[in-house]
Design a protein around this nucleic acid. Sequence first.
DNA 1: TCGATGTGAGAGCAGTGCTCTCTGTCGAGA
DNA 2: TCTCGACAGAGAGCACTGCTCTCACATCGA
Lengths: 226, 226
Amino acid sequence: MPPTARERVRAELTAEITAAARRQLAEVGAAALSLRAVARELGMASSALYRYFPSRDDLLTRLIIDGYDALGAAAEAADDPAAPPRERWLAVCRAVRAWAREHPHEYALLYGSPVPGYAAPRDTVPAASRVGVALGRVLGDAARAGALPDTDGERDPGLVSEEAVAVLGGEHPALDEAVRVRALLAWSALYGTLSFELFGHFAGSVQDADRYFDRAMGELAGLIGL
Amino acid sequence: MPPTARERVRAELTAEITAAARRQLAEVGAAALSLRAVARELGMASSALYRYFPSRDDLLTRLIIDGYDALGAAAEAADDPAAPPRERWLAVCRAVRAWAREHPHEYALLYGSPVPGYAAPRDTVPAASRVGVALGRVLGDAARAGALPDTDGERDPGLVSEEAVAVLGGEHPALDEAVRVRALLAWSALYGTLSFELFGHFAGSVQDADRYFDRAMGELAGLIGL
DNA sequence: TCGATGTGAGAGCAGTGCTCTCTGTCGAGA
DNA sequence: TCTCGACAGAGAGCACTGCTCTCACATCGA
């Protein structure tokens, strides 16, 4: 059956709340996100918000999932399956960086310190893995196309879990443990680089952030074998 | 002249405050660190704390500097100048990880999302660079000992700043732009790996965190040429 | 000894997340 | 068509936060 009028207006208001919260998030950051301020912006009593989100943490969860989804969508959109693997890897990395620079507070919410007393619920996992899946697709396609150089078949099983294997390109002879570990390392290095840039840890070390990022991601591509 | 009795008791109480704050930090995290709770623990009025720290942010700054110093000291203590470069690199990385795992909240305070509305003052910079300096010493010693393989002398000046060059081993023919960029990348990759581990982003991907970390840091050492 | 300085306490302000109660409205079933 | 129950919003209130101000007291140097 179609949604009733009440359900429609409820969905609308829910969307308005998350939109206002996202706006506030971009302005003051997650830690300073205030339910009352959101209510003020919408011209309603703070207590009324609790009809839509049982707690501030639930509102944060909504924002986290939305953030992961937006970031994942940006990464997927930047991936051109027809391009050479190395270019695909660089394109996805650049897209992640572009999104992070456009939404620094959301990035911090996703990849910065966890909010104390708040544990991300299971619902966030699928959205959170989208970027990893996108990178894994590049890896898997490269392996299937024979674009990954043969390794010495190094074996060190038990380092990377089954789930990660599935994400990181699936089973393929060219994707041995060594390649997967490097891919995982490159993945976290991407976020290490971004965090350092956005959180100001490069301080004066890096002159031209754009060029440094491209060089760094190129090094990582080389490390994986792309 | 010797410190007066007043100065002595003042210094003592200041130390007690930071100790209580650090204890609270370890329990509830930076975002939930409450001045009033610290005061309660010390059995004094919250307003009295403001005689010692003009604001909560100043107390946080103190904790941040102390944290950087403790982390830096751990890194320096783990470095044995007589060991081979690769072992030195791994030892420092392991020490950083060990400290981070023992003080996750402090690590999050140092390398997680910046506290909104709070800009780290200049005073934190020297303490913050200690780990970088320790890693840079390993790199410089390796270069001077001829332990770094010759690169193709790739030149891409302007990527890494003068200050970073000074930290990353100083001037040496074996330390060209390529090596420095890789060192910087490895440095941020170390923190990317730690953040992923501590903030739970590896989720189910990594089975044995200890072994994975060693492998990953080994890959980074190889990337630099150690 | 006296005045300047440092110190702590208490009250109070504006803000927070959250709960509870009360009122009004809307819509589906009798 | 009427009624009753589910739902939505408002307001007051609780316990908490960082921070400021004033007031009383202790200490210490001239």
